[in-house]
């Protein structure tokens, strides 16, 4: 049930990480290194974490977002969140990450 996968779409300046599944402590730990490898390989100006296919996210999702925010910054880019669902939005709002990490919809 808590399988989390990622698809990567890159263009000249952007890397979009499309997450699919549920983000909890179990699923987050299996995917964070894979995402980091892509962030450092592409060194895109903007990295989008697309959450449109994420049906559930707890505070481990916050950890996943904040960790990728740090790594993207280190790689010279900016992290943005795309299409968060209601559950992700509530958790991000509670932690205040919506104030430091821009949210966009497409």
């Amino acid at each position: 049930m808590n399988v989390l996968t990622a698809k990567y779409v890159s263009s000249e300046d952007t890397l979009t990480v499309i997450l699919n599944g549920e983000i909890d402590h179990h699923s987050a730990q299996s995917i964070r290194e894979e995402i980091d490898r892509q962030i450092y390989a592409h060194r895109a100006k903007t990295v989008y974490l697309d959450l449109k296919n994420v049906g559930f996210m707890d505070s481990s999702g916050l950890g996943l977002i904040l960790g990728r925010y740090t790594h993207t910054k280190e790689a010279g880019g900016v992290l943005k969140i795309l299409n968060p669902g209601a559950s992700a939005q509530r958790v991000m709002k509670l932690a205040g990450t919506d104030k430091i990490i821009p949210i966009e919809w497409d």
Binding site: H25, A28, Q29, R32, D58, S59, S60, G61, L62, G63, L64, L66, G67, T70, V91, L94, A95
Partner: peptide, 14 residues
């Protein structure tokens, strides 16, 4: 590791 948000109890509370 910084990979946990430190928000577990805050979320439970809220």
């Amino acid at each position: 590791s910084g990979e946990r948000g430190g928000m577990g109890f805050s979320i439970m509370e809220s």
